[in-house]
C-alpha cells in the first residue's frame, strides 16, 4: 500500500506517494524526475547517488524514503541559482577538470558542497576524506581535489592567490 509523505526538495515542498520499501534515490529519479543523482551500485558504495538531507550528505540509494518525511533534500539540480548561473563548485569542476565522464560528478559535487559549508578552507586531506565515499574511475581524484580547492578559494574570496593558470 502506498503512503503519502511530504518533504522539501531544493526549496520546493513536495508530496509523493511511495511504497514503504522504496529508497530516496528511486523517488528522486523516478517520481520527481530529478535524474542528476545517479545509481552507480545501489548498495551505498560508490556515492554517485549522494544528495543532502538536512545539509548532510547521504547515499540516497540506501536511504529509506520514509525517513525523509518533513526534511530538506538538496540535489545537484538545486545548486544553480535562480538565474541559471552555476554554483562556484560547479564552475570549479569545469575550470579545473574535476569532471570527465561525469557520472560521479553530481554526487561528488554534493559531497564537496557539504564539506565547504562546514569547512570553508579544508586541507587536501580533509577534501580527500570528504569525497572518500565517492568513487571516480576517470580522474584519479587529483583534479577533483584541485577543483574543490579552487571552489573553496573562490567562495571565500581567495581566488586570486590560487587561480594560477597552467
Amino acid at each position: 500500500m502506498k503512503l503519502t509523505i511530504g518533504f522539501s526538495v531544493n526549496g520546493d515542498s513536495v508530496e509523493v506517494e511511495v511504497l514503504p520499501h522504496w529508497n530516496l534515490l528511486k523517488v528522486l529519479r523516478d517520481v520527481l524526475e530529478l535524474t542528476g543523482a545517479k545509481q552507480g551500485c545501489g548498495e551505498g558504495e560508490c556515492g554517485a547517488c549522494t544528495v543532502l538531507v538536512n545539509g548532510a550528505p547521504v547515499n540516497s540509494c540506501i536511504y529509506p524514503v520514509l525517513e525523509v518525511e518533513g526534511k530538506e533534500v538538496t540535489t545537484i539540480e538545486g545548486l544553480m541559482d535562480k538565474s541559471g548561473r552555476l554554483h562556484p563548485i560547479q564552475q570549479a569542476f569545469l575550470e579545473k577538470a574535476g569532471v570527465q565522464c561525469g557520472f560521479c560528478t553530481p554526487g561528488m559535487i554534493m559531497s564537496a558542497f557539504a564539506l565547504l559549508k562546514a569547512n570553508p578552507d579544508p586541507t587536501e586531506d580533509e577534501i580527500r576524506h570528504a569525497i572518500a565515499g565517492n568513487m571516480c574511475r576517470c580522474t584519479g581524484y587529483v583534479q577533483i581535489v584541485e577543483s574543490v580547492q579552487h571552489a573553496a578559494a573562490v567562495m571565500s574570496g581567495r581566488s586570486q592567490e590560487r587561480a594560477g593558470k597552467e
Binding site: 529519479r29 530529478l34 535524474t35 542528476g36 543523482a37 545517479k38 545509481q39 540535489t75 545537484i76 539540480e77 545548486l79 544553480m80 552555476l86 560547479q90 564552475q91 569542476f93 569545469l94 575550470e95 579545473k96 577538470a97 569532471v99 565522464c101 561525469g102 557520472f103 560528478t105 553530481p106 559535487i109 593558470k165 597552467e166
Partner: peptide, 21 residues
C-alpha cells in the same frame, strides 16, 4: 596549447542524460 575549461557543463548540473536517465 591552452588549458581551456571543460566545455561539458551539462555534467555538473545534473542535466546530462545517461542511458540510466
Amino acid at each position: 596549447g591552452k588549458s581551456f575549461p571543460r566545455a561539458d557543463a551539462e555534467k555538473v548540473t545534473g542535466k546530462a542524460a545517461y542511458i540510466n536517465d
